[in-house]
Amino acid sequence: MALCILLVFSLSGMFALVRKKFVSGHPFPCRYEMVHAYQGIIDGNAVIISGIDGAYMGHFLADGKDAIWYPVSARVNLARQGKKLLFPVASENIPLIREYLDRKVPVYIDDLREFSYAEDFNKLREAFLFEHVRSVNSYSIYRLSEREVAAQ
């Protein structure tokens, strides 16, 4: 009796998993498609501000691209070792981003993790204009530009 109950219990779990597999399928690989979209956009020198970690981004942008990655927030994975920040955080270094824009270096940002890092994105949205460049599923890649220049 106990064995039958166990068997029914485990088989019910398995049927639930089979049903889930048919109904929901695999989630769309947003990160993977996002870095591929960046690969298509970037031609030479560029700055990428993203919530995607630098190791993943660096792996795909290493060949023939001269792109620099900055984390959008200090909470982005692998952005720091312990308490030590490895790279300047874009939302806390607005003048640095302005410097790149002054030098005509294209600066891109994606909204993949905007929900997680909303405060940091808001700081950047206040400082710069976001010009839509490409869509990836329900997310977007934007090119940053100065608000004052755009106003002129």
Binding site: M14, L17, V18, K21, H26, P27, P29, C30, R31, Y32, D53, A55, Y56, N77, L78
Partner: peptide, 20 residues
């Protein structure tokens, strides 16, 4: 049941773990 095609697995979503 466990088959995840490499295209979907390439997303490496589990925080730092899968990437590293």
């Amino acid at each position: 049941l466990v088959n995840v095609p490499p295209y979907y697995a390439a997303n490496l979503r589990t925080l730092h773990d899968e990437v590293q």
